[in-house]
Amino acid sequence: MRALRWAVVGSYLFLAMLPLAWMALTSIKDREDTISQNARFVPAPVESTSPDSVAYPATLDAYRTLNEVFIGARHSFWHHLGNSVIIGVLSTLASVLLGTACAYGFSRFRIAGAKDWLFFILSTRFMPPLAVVVPVLLMYRRFDLQGTHVGLILLYTAFNLSLAVWLMKGFIDEIPRAFEEAALVDGYSRLDAFRRIIVPQAATGMAVTAVFCLISAWNEYGFAMTLNSSSAVTVPAYFAGLQGNIEGMPWPQVAAGALLFVAPIVLFTVLVRRHLLRGITFGTIKQ
């Protein structure tokens, strides 16, 4: 039984990690080595290896050439990474601020039909982006928001509000009401109590919520691709756009860029590991 356990966990761990490990190996190859007919999986600090060897010469060229504009794109990887950062960070800030205020409202006030509202907010998350994108596109054309950073920031803010409200509601519900009630008795206004009592108490929850909002904005593809053709394209849409590249994909650079792109997400996953369950289930399952 014990051996079976180890075999299951070990083989699953291997399979789960394999694509990322292969990505790391690919990012330090020459393009020829990425599409070689025999597997090359041992990086070696040499100039060249024989064609049938499993070893290949390791190089950082892919990382150095990420500033090039590849066929099928109009800007370099760095430009698009910048877009991802701007759009991700600003929409996350907005979602967390609005979501925290809204969650506080639902947590502390008597609101008619509160449960229905909350389920409505949750259900907005189930909409497939492709089913709502046309009206948004027409609306954005009217207001000149198509292909702009602001357009995507607004959209991602709305898209992440369901997550932010539900997660923050869970965190705020856990803060004892006695804290604010004491503050209100001391003459704090409701807004002061929120700012000086709730926000500091909920800081961890807000940080966790921010991580999950950032990840979902960072990874989003459907809206990013359909609402954009130029300047505000984020990394997922940029990479996907390279697929039409007739000279073949620049695999080492794709691997290098993808690795840089997912590295912060891996770091954040480690940071919020204790809250992962909450995050992925919108706070509906707590532990």
């Binding site: 694509p19 990874n219 997922p236 849409a237 996907a240 390279l242 997912v262 997400i265 891996v266």
Partner: peptide
């Protein structure tokens, strides 16, 4: 936690 579009590619 990773981007489906990027990992899928």
């Amino acid at each position: 936690m990773l981007s489906p579009a990027v990992m899928g590619l």
